[in-house]
Simulated scan of single mutants.
Amino acid sequence: MTRKLRIWHSGAILHITARGNRKHNLFRDRKDYQHYLSLLLKAKKRNPFILHSFCLMPNHIHLIIEIIDHSPSKIIHYIHSIYGRYFNKKYNYIGHVFQDRYFSKLIKNWKQLMDTSSYVHLNPVRSKHVPRPEDYHWSSYKSIISTSEDSLTDKERLYGALGDNPQQKYRFYVETKLRIKDWALPKMASVESE
């Protein structure tokens, strides 16, 4: 059986998820999370893309990326192959670290970008890791709601239609979803491949 081709183009914004093999943890300690984030930064320099938001959960990852010139497969393969070797060496394992191929869903407009980013940032709350999204250390939420510079994420697209005080407005948008418990997004489907 052949794989479906993943369709991508320059300027496409994708919600990418990947899970640990057999739903096992991808990250076991602080250094694991830090290593993955350092690989994201290296990948941005090697195969430039825009990272709008992210969340690294213990057994899966969420990335919202905008493609510039390089295929998402090339970007994710670079990060995950290096991370997989690191993880297997550190924990004396062999075999796949990530389950199957990554999944991706095309984000078609700003509203969908806001909803998906909110969903990503509320993941640690929904899974009861933390009571508030800003309490979770391994996501871009704190960066997005602050005025501090961040070399990893690009906030401008999210801020796009928010006007003045975009940090406060984004926080309000996310916290509104938290109050009404509106987490549901359509199930991730494996988007057309490369």
Rank of each mutant, 00 (worst) to 15 (best):
residue 145 I to V: 15
residue 144 I to Y: 08
residue 40 L to R: 01
residue 150 D to V: 05
residue 138 W to E: 07
residue 13 I to M: 11
residue 179 R to E: 10
residue 66 E to L: 05
residue 16 I to V: 15
residue 162 L to I: 09
residue 168 Q to C: 05
residue 140 S to I: 08
residue 148 S to V: 05
residue 186 P to T: 06
residue 164 D to V: 07
residue 145 I to M: 06
residue 131 P to R: 05
residue 95 G to N: 06
residue 119 Y to W: 06
residue 21 N to E: 11
residue 174 V to G: 09
residue 188 M to K: 08
residue 193 S to K: 12
residue 36 Y to R: 01
residue 46 R to V: 02
residue 6 R to H: 14
residue 186 P to M: 01
residue 182 D to E: 10
residue 101 R to M: 04
residue 24 H to N: 15
residue 112 Q to N: 10
residue 159 Y to W: 15
residue 111 K to S: 09
residue 46 R to F: 05
residue 151 S to W: 00
residue 57 M to H: 13
residue 16 I to H: 03
residue 143 S to T: 13
residue 179 R to N: 06
residue 149 E to W: 02
residue 60 H to Y: 15
residue 45 K to F: 00
residue 44 K to Y: 04
residue 154 D to N: 14
residue 28 R to N: 12
residue 12 A to M: 14
residue 80 H to E: 05
residue 47 N to P: 00
residue 163 G to N: 03
residue 47 N to C: 08
residue 145 I to N: 06
residue 99 Q to M: 08
residue 31 K to E: 13
residue 55 C to L: 10
residue 54 F to D: 01
residue 131 P to E: 04
residue 34 Q to C: 02
residue 117 S to E: 08
residue 76 I to Q: 03
residue 1 M to K: 11
residue 175 E to S: 07
residue 58 P to H: 14
residue 165 N to Q: 13
residue 155 K to N: 10
residue 7 I to W: 04
residue 142 K to G: 13
residue 119 Y to E: 03
residue 160 G to H: 12
residue 24 H to P: 01
residue 124 P to L: 12
residue 85 R to F: 00
residue 145 I to T: 10
residue 27 F to V: 08
residue 72 P to I: 06
residue 180 I to S: 10
residue 19 R to I: 10
residue 13 I to T: 15
residue 9 H to W: 09
residue 124 P to F: 11
residue 11 G to P: 09
residue 24 H to K: 15
residue 142 K to H: 07
residue 29 D to I: 01
residue 151 S to D: 09
residue 112 Q to L: 08
residue 171 R to Q: 14
residue 165 N to P: 04
residue 150 D to F: 02
residue 158 L to C: 11
residue 65 I to E: 00
residue 67 I to M: 09
residue 170 Y to M: 12
residue 185 L to N: 04
residue 113 L to Q: 09
residue 170 Y to V: 11
residue 143 S to D: 15
residue 55 C to P: 12
residue 129 H to S: 13
residue 38 S to M: 02
residue 4 K to V: 12
residue 19 R to G: 04
residue 11 G to I: 08
residue 108 K to N: 14
residue 48 P to V: 10
residue 5 L to P: 14
residue 187 K to V: 02
residue 73 S to G: 14
residue 191 V to M: 07
residue 188 M to N: 12
residue 23 K to M: 07
residue 179 R to T: 07
residue 31 K to G: 02
residue 185 L to K: 07
residue 55 C to D: 13
residue 104 S to H: 08
residue 187 K to Y: 00
residue 121 H to A: 05
residue 60 H to M: 14
residue 20 G to P: 13
residue 35 H to D: 00
residue 115 D to S: 01
residue 179 R to F: 02
residue 16 I to D: 02
residue 20 G to F: 10
residue 164 D to H: 04
residue 20 G to Y: 09
residue 85 R to Y: 02
residue 94 I to M: 03
residue 121 H to R: 02
residue 83 Y to A: 02
residue 47 N to D: 11
residue 184 A to R: 08
residue 16 I to C: 04
residue 16 I to W: 03
residue 7 I to P: 03
residue 4 K to E: 09
residue 25 N to Q: 14
residue 135 D to H: 08
residue 79 I to Q: 01
residue 152 L to M: 06
residue 157 R to T: 13
residue 161 A to P: 03
residue 192 E to A: 07
residue 115 D to M: 03
residue 130 V to N: 06
residue 173 Y to N: 04
residue 9 H to R: 15
residue 144 I to G: 07
residue 182 D to H: 08
residue 151 S to V: 10
residue 99 Q to R: 12
residue 27 F to I: 09
residue 163 G to T: 06
residue 5 L to N: 11
